[in-house]
Nucleic acid binder design. Structure first.
Lengths: 138, 138
DNA sequence: CTTGACCCTGTAGTTGCTACAGGGTGCATA
DNA sequence: TATGCACCCTGTAGCAACTACAGGGTCAAG
């Protein structure tokens, strides 16, 4: 199959497929006489693996490792588990950070009395103690 | 104050301060004879505003708008509210996305029976239907 | 035989910094 | 006085993970 077909089959942009190849995630396929990339089912499988992992938020580095591990069929999968668990921890951390932001933003927005900027609690909270000594000098 | 002092006072790196200047967030300060940047309290105020907004996850574009609005003291703060609410919506969306990822990852990791890669549910789930026709050629 | 959809390479843009390289300045100390 | 060190300057390149051209080539249909 040609790159456009592969891309469509995996909901990926053509440029992204080429990018994955250059990044070493997808092996360079055979070429036609016209120098077109020619993919087989293995590539489709590989690319859909990559996309799923990406959808789950794994970094390209992590995907590279997962792909390498996936090829070592006989080995124990502890390393796979470690990568996934590490990623889960990162995701949980990010959720915690974002949740804190969310609460702070809600507080901020809730305090807005819809008057002028001069007494807007949002602006006030962002730029707290206004030192009266100076205005922004140019 | 010199750039290093300003940076320390706002827990910012010196390079980041210069970056904000180039990005139009922080107005270029006066210079000393030696061409060193010389900041006043207004800059300190401005930079701490920027840092707080960034900590809350506002994009640089949003910060630019907030800064512009903060200077229009007499105007209604509806626009401020709109930016903050829009950002809150984005944060909530991101949390939802990450929560979905988290659940999927937990499911994945929970299904791992700690055997070999060959029957690892994590790998299996990532690369689902293995088409037996081909192995990754090259 | 030309139009349009596809393919190719290579490079530059995005966001928000961070990290040099290759220089100058200012102050304390030996 | 020299000299070392911390700080400052500019400008550019790098990170992730793509995305979007520019400037070409190929192929099948009408």
């Amino acid at each position: 199959m040609k790159i456009g077909e592969l891309a469509k089959a995996t909901a990926t942009k053509v440029e992204t497929v080429r990018f994955y190849e250059k990044a070493g995630l997808l092996s360079p396929p055979a070429r036609t006489d016209a120098n077109y990339r020619s993919y087989g089912p293995a590539h489709l499988q590989r690319l859909s693996f990559i996309r799923r992992a990406r959808d789950l938020g794994f970094s390209l580095d992590a995907v590279r490792e997962l792909l390498a591990l996936a090829d070592e069929r006989g080995k124990p999968c502890a390393a796979v588990d470690a990568i996934a668990s590490g990623h889960l921890a990162e995701v949980e951390l990010k959720i915690a950070d974002l949740s804190a932001m969310r609460e702070e933003l809600r507080r901020l927005i809730g305090s807005c009395r819809h008057n002028t900027v001069a007494d807007c609690k949002i602006i006030e909270t962002l730029g707290p103690r206004v030192l009266e000594t100076t205005r922004m000098s140019a």
